[in-house]
């Protein structure tokens, strides 16, 4: 096996056989923020054969403090995170297959993305997408590794269909609101601990060393100097709608999904039109140039309109981000005013 992986091959639980397995596996990373970029870099360096990174957002200055694949230039040019991450990952390891997808993951997307994937890594910033991952994991029998953090706190758990409780079993109901990077901030060491646990569990799954999986819910507070685990096997529910005997996968039913979302760590609302068609940014740009008091900028991937002290960013896939507000109705008003349904 190649020199570049020699230290990892020397590690006996991986070895030559494990390295070969890694090279044949496909990891799907949902989210290219702090957890996503850290996980992606570790797995790319480890020689995972194929890595797909999916993200709906673009790079901003506030990301650079912790999102390790991005540079100042990415922030200045507002490069979509999936593009910037894939670019950097290819520089790190040109021998593996890396795919960056600019995409907001909902039902249709996850059902397509999960095909042929060996494991999924959760690097999302919200519970709704995690529930989507959870049900896709159960339906298609693909393990996933939950990870999340805010402030100096973080936690992780590995969900293996048919073996462990699923995320729905652990969580009970999806919480409304709660702490986000928006309200309590986030420090990089907390991110790196969660990502390290996720990537380690990913490597165990990928080299098929199932007996070494953690099996416990791990959590810590790196500032309060606390860490612990809880055994959660007994939370598995036989009547769970996601992983029970009569599963209906409710989180894969579009009726249960919202069309708008307030983004973590940002004063921003995202609106996704129900009508899924590609947006013509050139046409939109021409239209917006005529708006009095507005400033229009763009690149190949998105269009930026600054107006009324707010910023609207339209993507090709139809989504619009409204920066400068957390108020969904105000965001919808601005959307309808300048972009139109």
């Amino acid at each position: 096996m190649k020199e570049r992986y020699s230290r990892q091959i020397l590690f006996s639980p991986i070895g030559e056989k494990g390295q070969q397995k890694l090279s044949e596996k496909h990891v799907l990373l949902i989210g290219a923020g702090a957890l996503g970029t850290s996980n992606a870099e570790m797995l790319a360096r480890a020689g995972v054969g194929k890595i797909t990174v999916v993200d709906r957002d673009y790079v901003e200055w506030s990301n650079l403090q912790r999102q390790q694949l991005f540079t100042e230039r990415d922030a200045v040019e507002r490069i979509p995170k999936a593009v910037a991450a894939a670019h950097r990952l290819r520089e790190i390891n040109s021998e593996i297959n890396i795919s960056g997808e600019i995409m907001d993951v909902s039902v249709q997307e996850i059902e397509e993305l999960v095909e042929g994937v060996d494991i999924m890594i959760d690097a999302t910033d919200n519970f709704e997408t995690r529930m989507l991952l959870n049900d896709a994991s159960q339906k298609y029998k693909v393990p996933w590794v939950y990870g999340a953090c805010t402030g100096s706190y973080g936690l992780s758990y590995t969900i293996v269909p048919g073996q462990t409780p699923c995320f729905s079993c652990l969580l009970g109901a999806v919480p409304m609101g709660g702490e986000t990077c928006d309200t309590v901030g986030i420090i990089s060491p907390a991110v790196q601990i969660v990502a390290a646990y996720q990537a380690a569990e990913a490597l165990k799954l990928l080299v098929e060393d199932y007996k070494s999986l953690r099996r416990n819910l791990f959590y810590f507070d790196i500032w309060q100097n606390q860490q612990s685990t809880i055994k959660v096997e007994k939370l598995k529910k036989d009547d769970c709608p996601s992983c029970g005997q009569a599963s209906t996968y409710p989180n894969l039913d579009p009726v249960n999904l919202s069309r708008t979302a307030v983004l973590c760590g940002r004063d921003t609302v995202q609106i996704r039109p129900a009508n899924k068609k590609k947006r013509n940014l050139d046409e939109l740009s021409d239209r917006l140039q005529a708006v009095e008091g507005g400033k229009v900028e763009g690149n190949t991937f998105l269009l930026n309109l600054t107006i009324e002290g707010r910023r609207l960013v339209a993507f090709q896939d139809g989504r619009v981000l409204i920066h400068g507000t957390k108020d969904i109705s105000e965001a919808k008003t601005l959307y309808n005013r300048y972009i139109g349904g």
Binding site: L35, D122, A148, L155, G178, E179, T180
Partner: peptide, 10 residues
Amino acid sequence: IEIVHFVGGG
């Protein structure tokens, strides 16, 4: 007592 709460950030 152990208390663990789920968060959404990432």
